[in-house]
Each structure stands twice: as C-alpha cells, then as structure tokens.
Write a protein that binds this DNA or RNA. Structure first.
Lengths: 137, 137
DNA sequence: TTGACTGCAAATGCTTTGCACCATT
DNA sequence: AATGGTGCAAAGCATTTGCAGTCAA
C-alpha cells in the first residue's frame, strides 16, 4: 500500500493528517522489513527531527486499531514489530540471524478454518510463526 | 507430567530441590489452565506464603530453559502465561472470554515442516494460535 | 562447607499518559 | 473557534537483577 493510500484511509477514518503522521506513514509504506517502534522512530526522525517517540507509539497504536498495520511480537525479541497490512501471509523467523521471511499457503488457511469450526469457533485472527535454521544445501 | 516427574527432571538437570521450587512445581503440575506468573505466584503463596515473585520468575525461567515448561505470549494479554510441556499441541483463544482450548493436528504439523523446507529451513520451533469467537449453534 | 538459591528492593526497558501548547479542520 | 494532535517528562508495569543472608548437597 502506498503512503497516499494509507493517508487516505486515515482521513476516511476521521484522523487529522498532521506532519508527524504523514512522516510515519511514509516510513511504513517504504519499509520492506518489519521495523520495531524504535526503528520507525529513528527513520521518522531523519525526515522530521522534531518527532517524538510518544507520537510514534500513539500513531502505530491507532494504525493497528484501524487494521492498517499489523503488530507482531516475535518470540526472539522482547519488543513489538510492525508491518503494513498487505495481503495475508505468515512468517518464518531465522533463529540465527533474526531475518524474517514471509509465506502464504492456501491449504493451511483452510485447515485453520476447519480446526476452529470443529472446536465450535469462528476464526477471527491467527498467528502462525515458524522458527527455523537455514539448511546448508 | 506429575510433580514428582518434574522434580526428578530438575534434579537430573542439576538443580537443587528447595521448598519454593517444590511448591512451584506442584502448582504447575496441577494447573490445567495456562497460568500467568502472577497466578503461579498467588497459588504458590497459598502453599508457602514466604515465596517471592522473584523466585517464581526465576524458576519459571529455568524450567523454560530446561524445556519442562512452555512460555506463551498470547496476544490478548500483555504478560506471559505458562504450561507444563506435555504432548505437542496448539491453542485456540476465545477472544471474548480469554478461555484457551488446545488442539492437535497432524496435517498441520506436516505442512509446517514442508513450508519450512521449501524456504530452505529446518523447522525448530513454531507458534500457532487461533483467535476465535464461539459459534452459536 | 560452599555454591546455589532466596527474599527484598531497586533497577530495567518497553510502553503509556498527564499536561500544556499547537495545528488541522 | 474547537477538537484533536504533539512533545516532553513522568508514570506504569511486567520482568530482571544486585546483594546479603540461607540452605541443600
């Protein structure tokens, strides 16, 4: 999703479009990794040094509520990491390097639904993270 | 796993079997839910009021390292929850009540392996949590 | 005996908040 | 003008740690 798209969605949601928010949205739209709050803050400060940590936290919180962004808490770090909500996918975390790969798999999606249904539940959310070590080929 | 089994494994691992540890192991062995550190602390204090929070944290940390216990960070709470490491399974969390159901599914296990392998990884750990809402039947 | 363990309280570190000022609408 | 947003600094909170005393082996 482009920074423009994100801005529009925020405006549609009734948020005021301020400089800090524009900067943060830009950072997120251009992040192809899964930055921590700290990282979003650092990158934002490069574009606008007056931005505060509190605003980054508040903004990411809002974006998460709006569903524009996903908040991850991978088990190899003790802080949250964010990514723009693009198409549905899951993550494989390299336990040696901390690198994050993304994957998607229709079969697993179906199985999740089925398992929830079998337990008498409607699936609302899901967290699937694989932690692995690179195979030497 | 019984409290005795847990004690034995701790001793085998070279840990000294102290009163606080015995109490905590007992609490864990009899917990059929997924108690938080605070809850383990409360339950332990009923058996031995002199126990301290620090010891509960330290003990759970040790047990986690030994693999006798699993540390979960479900996304509906902002603190960790523990359970004794019995057979492999995953969790479905009721997003309304916070209740945790357990399930196991061979097909999913295989798919996880396959996905990791396809990405060139050996699967070491995994986190699969479903979050759902009870279906009215 | 002695090194591991404990309780206590203080420290950590991520995250949240109160407040007074400021900017978007 | 009014409301929501911001920066700053202080507060929160789960978790960790330093320390001196204690206990299992």
């Amino acid at each position: 999703m482009s920074a423009q798209d994100l801005e529009q969605k925020c405006i549609d949601a009734g948020l005021k479009m301020t400089t800090p928010r524009r900067v943060i949205l830009n950072v997120l739209a251009h992040a192809h990794d899964h930055p921590s709050v700290e990282e979003v803050y650092e990158r934002s400060k490069k574009k606008d040094p007056s931005i505060s940590m509190a605003t980054v936290y508040r903004t990411l919180g809002l974006l998460d509520e709006l569903g524009l962004v996903f908040r991850h808490e991978f088990s190899d770090a003790d802080y949250a990491r964010y990514e723009v909500n693009e198409e549905h996918h899951h993550h494989l975390i390299d336990i040696d390097s901390g690198k994050v790969l993304e994957f998607q798999n229709d079969e697993i999606e179906k199985m999740k639904q089925k398992i929830a249904a079998n337990l008498g539940y409607e699936l609302v959310e899901c967290r699937l993270e694989l932690y692995g070590r690179k195979l030497k080929k």
